[in-house]
Design a protein around this nucleic acid. Structure first.
Lengths: 203, 203
DNA sequence: GCCCGCCGATGACATCTGTCATCCGCGATC
DNA sequence: GATCGCGGATGACAGATGTCATCGGCGGGC
């Protein structure tokens, strides 16, 4: 019997995935959480074998949660299940020690199999995403550039971004400029969108 | 036996919801589709009583699909199930003839109940969202303002937006300016975000 | 008939952005 | 020790953006 923990911030999706996995004779959903920072505690308490993690979660994102799991409970495997097939997410998930990565577009029948494979010690990776991840490559942005783009994503003025990042306005414009150069965006909004789509803006 | 049709672009979520609803003795998921423009056909073919609709779908958005359903199969109820609790979505869903509106944050146990209520001819509406919908009110934007904001959302320059909307650059700047005034945004990116969050940018 | 709002456009203007050169300090790295 | 990249900053400059006034045309209300 494979003991599964679900982590997703949307209660309905969480419950539905639980129903789906509980149909399998060899799987058992032993707990569910809606926040990233509750993952490790719940996994320990319920002795989970495999943890399904969404990326977007309050408290702690799914990739950071996978890293924490890998550190504190090395025997526990993690499988990222996410809405967005962002190449950067896949790369960072694998670096964080996740055992698998599937997008929510995949057929429902394959999920249980992915859980079994991960439990067996195999890696499960969406193949098309793996290819894209190679072509897109790792983030070209420096930490500050990413900070500034993150702050720019809400659409504020340079003054707003400067306040949020504790930088001078001129410095902000410099970082925006170099980030635009690296992403190929022609405005900061476009640069921010490109960086987001590639999964380069996680903390 | 209540015959249910599922429409959601994410196969995994679709399958999981099917598993969840099939646990109920009085519910039966008779079909699933991943596109909005396949909803009416599938509902007719499988004689669905209730259709669960996501808002974000390729082909046709969930609210437009609800309107089409209401027109062509008046006996068939629709229940919008969406990730985003945007006040404008709720308003437009009800105007389109949808019988219910729940966000994916709601506990899984309540979904089957919502389906039963809708099937019984009742309206099901997330209460907190209903309140917000009243305070936010209907969209203050004209059609063109919304067009321009939609085109602005990808982060392009004024020239890009002008090309996309077949307008002069000056006109685009005028619409952007008035949209910024109405939304309270201080840049077009902020205005676009605010309009999106309020659900004012659906076609 | 008149007024008002929306559409589409133009022109002028102040400000904001994006770009570039330049500076300093700090760690790495060679 | 020299070089390089990064963080942080300043100043200058061209071009993009946001604002406003103004125009003409069209349709809907009163």
């Amino acid at each position: 019997m494979i003991r599964v923990l679900l982590a997703d911030d949307q209660a309905l999706v969480r419950g539905a995935l639980a129903a789906l996995l509980d149909l399998e004779a060899d799987l058992e959903v032993v707990a569910q959480v809606g926040r990233g920072d509750e993952v490790v505690g719940a996994a320990r308490e319920h002795r989970a074998d495999v943890v399904l993690l969404d990326v977007e979660m309050p408290g702690l994102d799914g990739i950071a949660a996978a890293a924490a799991l890998h550190r504190e409970l090395p025997g526990c495997r993690s499988l990222i299940v996410t809405t967005f097939g962002r190449p950067g997410y896949l790369r960072r998930a694998l670096e964080a020690g996740a055992s698998g990565f599937v997008v929510k577009d995949t057929p429902a029948e394959q999920l249980a199999d992915a859980v079994r494979r991960v439990h067996a010690g195999l890696r499960v990776v969406d193949p098309s995403l793996a290819v894209e991840s190679l072509t897109v490559g790792t983030s070209p942005l420096t930490d500050r550039e990413a900070d500034v783009l993150r702050a720019a994503a809400t659409g504020g003025t340079v003054a707003d971004i400067a306040r949020d990042t504790f930088l001078s306005e001129g410095t902000v414009r410099n970082y925006l400029s170099s980030a635009m150069g690296k992403t190929g965006g022609r405005t900061r909004a476009e640069a921010a969108r490109i960086a987001q789509d590639n999964g380069w803006l996680l903390p």
